[in-house]
């Protein structure tokens, strides 16, 4: 793409690191920005580990990887982002943090720079409201893990200029990603359907209709889904599901989005899923929860 050559990813966490891999791999000069050099160093190590695996699998050569890595610049100095044509923010899911970041970036970056947000639950229009350039802000929601998943949900805020949206769309395609256009409504498409569906699953289990393993088997065998909903919830993390519920229910008041009591109890009992070794399944003993 002609006008976008240099990009920045703000936030070197799970999503930001993945997105920076996608951008650098697609040939863009890529700055990965975070608040501390330590975080940057940790992210850089993980990114190098990812590319080492790409080489081992024969997807990339050593030469290609060193070329990609030479395009990646980690920094904790915001001034370094002054040459960027587009910044994707993937900082904490907190409106104040995003406003503060974009407000400061607005002073550093040139007029033409587009700000894209990877938010999962916040409104693009609301984020844009604190950016000082709401016509040049767009929603660009990557999926986890960003370095492997092709889908990007793109949504304009109320004030987003059509030209901004088009440029960001073309950029997304040049990343070799697959953008889909959606609206600035809670959860866009994916989470809008997934969060209440997962809550329904939890309520079904809570009301004693079936055990987690029976639900997972039914959904996988009956519908051909690659993962059962309880397996998926354990992977996402039950604490994350609580946060998604809270964010969506607050806006939509949809009863299906309300946090099921069982979910709250499981989080209170530190059964967060894979990350604590126990969720709907027990990962230490490979045994079932409940019964």
């Amino acid at each position: 793409m002609d006008d976008i050559k240099t990009v920045a990813v703000a936030g070197a966490g799970t999503m930001g690191s993945g997105i920076s891999i996608v951008a650098a791999r697609a040939g863009f000069e890529t700055y990965l920005f975070d608040t501390s050099e330590d975080t940057i160093a940790r992210a850089r190590k993980q990114i190098e580990g990812f590319f080492a695996k790409s080489v081992a699998k024969g997807k990339l050569t050593e030469e290609q990887v060193s070329e990609i890595l030479s395009r990646m610049h980690g920094t904790s100095k915001m001034e370094d982002l002054a040459s960027c044509d587009l910044v994707i923010e993937a900082v904490f899911e907190d409106l104040n943090v995003k406003h503060d970041l974009l407000g400061r970036l607005n002073d550093v970056c040139p007029e033409h720079t587009i700000f894209a947000s990877n938010t999962s639950t916040l409104s693009i229009s609301e984020i844009a409201g604190g950016s000082g350039r709401s016509d040049r802000v767009v929603g660009m929601h990557f999926c986890l893990p960003a370095q492997l998943m092709k889908l990007v949900e793109m949504s304009p805020g109320l004030n987003t200029a059509e030209e901004t949206f088009k440029k960001a769309w073309a950029f997304c395609e040049s990343l070799k990603q697959k953008p889909v256009r959606t609206q600035d409504t809670p959860g866009f498409i994916l989470n809008y359907f997934l969060v209440p569906f997962n809550n329904d699953v939890i309520r079904l289990i809570e009301s004693g209709v079936a055990e987690p393993a029976d639900v997972d088997r039914a959904i996988k065998k009956g519908l051909g889904y690659p993962m059962g909903p309880c397996e998926l919830l354990d992977l996402i993390g039950l604490d994350t599901q609580v946060r998604l519920c809270e964010a969506f229910y607050e806006v939509t008041k949809d009863p299906r989005a309300a946090c099921p009591p069982l979910l709250k109890r499981m989080v209170a009992a530190n059964r967060l899923g894979r990350k604590t070794g126990q969720g709907f399944y027990n990962y230490e003993q490979n045994a079932m929860f409940g019964g």
């Binding site: 998943m149 889908l151 959606t182 498409i189 994916l190 359907f193 519908l223 889904y225 690659p226």
Partner: peptide, 14 residues
């Protein structure tokens, strides 16, 4: 786009 999103995002067959 609805169909594509759910297939690409969640691996649903349809």
């Amino acid at each position: 786009d609805l169909d594509l999103t759910l297939k690409l995002g969640l691996g649903y067959p349809e």
